[in-house]
Design a protein around this nucleic acid. Structure first.
Lengths: 124, 124
DNA sequence: TTGACATATGCCTATATCGGCATGTAATGT
DNA sequence: ACATTACATGCCGATATAGGCATATGTCAA
């Protein structure tokens, strides 16, 4: 099997770089498809297809106006993602504290026993 | 062409539900692969492959201990995602304010001119 | 009605994935 | 040295996707 249905999942929808660009572009204001095409330099059919995916997961809203269709980002649909990522916040803060504490401890010791073989400085 | 290289992108890495499960499971503590397999009820080879993807984008860290390999989530690598989603925060707040304002306006008017044909209640 | 404009959709191909299975590799125990 | 444990990797098939192209749909204008 391949990846589990991209089309119906917010995480998969934003995994595509162009879709993220579109979301950012449509965050502040409503725009017709043509403007997106021009602004982002993409093919029209490509934009239409990305918009379709984004609509299916509720990341954008559409409104018809004459022969144009105005799209805008539905920012609320991005919240779940923000919140999911936020559940890890306490952990990265924890890690930062550890790093900071270690740095301070070393400073107190005047880095006297800091030997390359002893440290995990290669972190990264 | 298909989707642009999933393996080297954080957004794509977390697009996979099982990988998200693994990240959550490894957020608090270091664990050997076997425990992940057992805890999440996945195939061992599948877990290994997901861990590989997660490692490639820095979402997990690995440490060898005897014949085990201990993995843990590198929460910091999730921050960019959190921050990206956070750039939309002002917009969803904005939308909430609009909704609230409209609701209050309607309340003030006693909903006198609220007609089904007039509203976009069919919104989903 | 005819035609131009704005957007959507269908078909096709190349590619990238996930999962399953078998196998490879490294560390430990006997 | 050999078996066992703990993971990783390679190959395969099924599927889903993105992009390109042609075309369909829908709206306005003359």
């Amino acid at each position: 099997m391949a990846r589990a249905s991209t089309t119906s999942d917010t995480f998969n929808a934003v995994a595509e770089p162009r879709r993220r660009e579109i979301l950012s572009y449509l965050a502040g204001a409503e725009r017709p498809v043509g403007e997106i095409v021009e602004a982002l330099g993409l093919e029209q059919t490509s934009v239409s297809k990305h918009l379709r995916v984004l609509r299916n997961v509720g990341l954008v809203r559409m409104r018809c106006q004459g022969r144009q269709k105005l799209y805008r980002t539905n920012a609320e649909a991005i919240r779940p993602l923000h919140e999911w990522a936020g559940t890890f916040e306490r952990y990265w803060q924890h890690q930062l504290h550890r790093v900071k504490a270690r740095a301070e401890a070393m400073a107190l010791q005047g880095l006297s026993d800091l030997k390359p073989s002893d440290t995990k400085l290669k972190e990264k």
